[in-house]
Structure formats: structure tokens, C-alpha cells
Design a binder for these strands. Structure first.
Lengths: 133, 133
DNA sequence: CTTAGTGCAAACTGTTTGCAGAGGG
DNA sequence: CCCTCTGCAAACAGTTTGCACTAAG
């Protein structure tokens, strides 16, 4: 199957890349809607799925109930804000992290890992100092 | 608020503990229903929530669309089967894993991490050998 | 008795799908 | 022109909630 670069598709890709964030389908939809009011949420979902299959973006498995998508297709890990639930890229290389992946464990043949640091992001740290929630 | 030990609550706790697995609310519901046919799924959800708040069980943040719950309340990591999506406890101590958590990163004040190995579980390894999916 | 907990149904959230029509290549 | 992609609405999966009744303490 060949994939066509439609306006919607391009917009989604652009908007995700320029955001530098890890948006959910709905967040992305809200932003794109301002420039392309007739786009539908279904289109956003369909394209995020397809773009991640093709390898132009990455679908994330992270904390929280909604799926998130990443413009950065290299292997890297994430940080999760326990207060506002946003997700950022961890700017550390995997070899700095020191995770030792055994070949097998508990009967599993291991193929990889997923590491997610958690903590308070810059904004939420400020909020916590001034007004205690 | 004080919590009452109702039959339903006790059953949920028991069934989860004896399963030694990381069940979803629905899986648990299906099992309990055999012994307690009038229990409702809503009750299972409500109790899993409450029991995890009280600290008798643990709510997991793991791969997959459904929430999973763990009878084991100690801090530990998980292994995820990329084929059948089941989740097992990792029988390794955190200090064996060698993860170095910096104090801060990308503006975040870090408080912890979540590590999930992924691979093929015993059953799925067998399946893969005989019949290629 | 009192008030937390239950079963049921209905609501809600996030995501997926069927379809007829539109528009990339 | 063809066939992938779109918008729309309706379906779906997982979870939560309002309510009147039940039962634990």
C-alpha cells in the first residue's frame, strides 16, 4: 500500500513536529482545527496510526489514559510529570542510564525495555511552591 | 472514612492474591462471577480503586489499554509480553538493575522511575516455534 | 440504627469503523 | 480515472456515576 501526502497528513506531521511536545490525538486536533476547521478527529487518529506505522512518528506507551505521539523517531526515554501529566523527552543516552537487560528473565526472552522517569516538571514545581494544591 | 470488609471486597482481594497474575478489572470480574454471580463490574472497579488507595493492592501503570492490578504491594518492576500482552513481576531487585536516577533532568525534579522489560513469555515462545503467526 | 457499599443502568471518555463522496497521483 | 483518504455519524471498549436498596459494624 502506498501512502499519499494529503494536506491533512502534512498538517498533522508539521504541527506535531513543531510542537516539540508529546501530544495526544485530541490536543493535536484542537490545534489543527484552528487552521483547518473541517478536519475530523477520526482523520487525526487514522493518520497518527499510519504515520507511526510508516515510521515518520512514534506511538508512545506512557503513563496516562490517552495515547501520545512523538515527533522524535529515535530510541529514547521519557519523563512524566506526576502533577500535570505531560510527557517530555529524556535528554540522556541509554548507555548513560546503565540499565542492564538480561537475556532472559522469568521465562521471558527479553527484547527491550521501556523506562520512564517521573517527577515534577518546571511549571508544577513553581506552582507547588506558591499555592499548595 | 472507614472501610468495611464486605464479602465482595474480600473475594476481590482473595481472587487477586491467589491468581498471582496482574489481572484487569474485567478478568477479575469474570473469575469472581463464577462464585458470586450477582456481583457487578462496577463493584469490582470501585473496590480495586479503594483497595489500591488503602494500599492493600497496587494499581499498575503498564503497557496496554486496560488498567491492571497487582497483589504485590512492594516496589518492583514488570515484564510485558509483546505477543499476548500479559504482565508478570520481574523477579529482580531494583539495585540489580543498575538504573541511575539523577536528581533533576530537563527541568524536572525526579522522584522515581518505572521500568518495564518487554519480550516473549514462555507460552508465546513455544507458539512462535511451532506456528508462525 | 447509621452510613458505607451494592447492583443496575445510564453516562462518559477515548478510540475505531462503515460509508458515500472528494481529491491526490 | 482510480483508489486512498476524508468527514461524518454511529459503534465500540473501558471506566465512572447516580440512585434506591442492602448490609456491615
Amino acid at each position: 500500500m502506498q501512502i499519499r501526502m494529503t494536506n491533512q497528513r502534512e498538517m498533522i506531521l508539521q504541527e506535531l513536529q513543531k510542537s516539540r511536545e508529546h501530544l495526544t490525538a485530541d490536543e493535536l486536533y484542537q490545534r489543527i482545527r484552528k487552521k483547518m476547521p473541517r478536519i475530523s478527529l477520526a482523520t487525526v487518529y487514522r493518520n497518527l496510526e499510519i504515520l507511526s506505522e510508516v515510521g515518520l512518528i512514534q506511538k508512545l506507551e506512557v503513563s496516562g489514559r490517552q495515547k501520545r505521539f512523538d515527533w522524535n523517531t529515535e530510541e529514547h526515554d521519557h519523563i512524566y510529570c506526576i502533577h500535570c501529566h505531560k510527557v517530555d523527552n529524556l535528554k540522556m543516552d541509554r548507555d548513560e542510564l546503565g540499565v542492564k537487560v538480561p537475556d532472559t528473565a522469568s521465562g521471558y526472552k527479553l527484547t527491550g525495555y521501556r523506562l520512564e522517569f517521573s517527577g515534577l516538571c518546571e511549571n508544577c514545581r513553581k506552582d507547588k511552591n506558591t499555592q499548595e494544591s
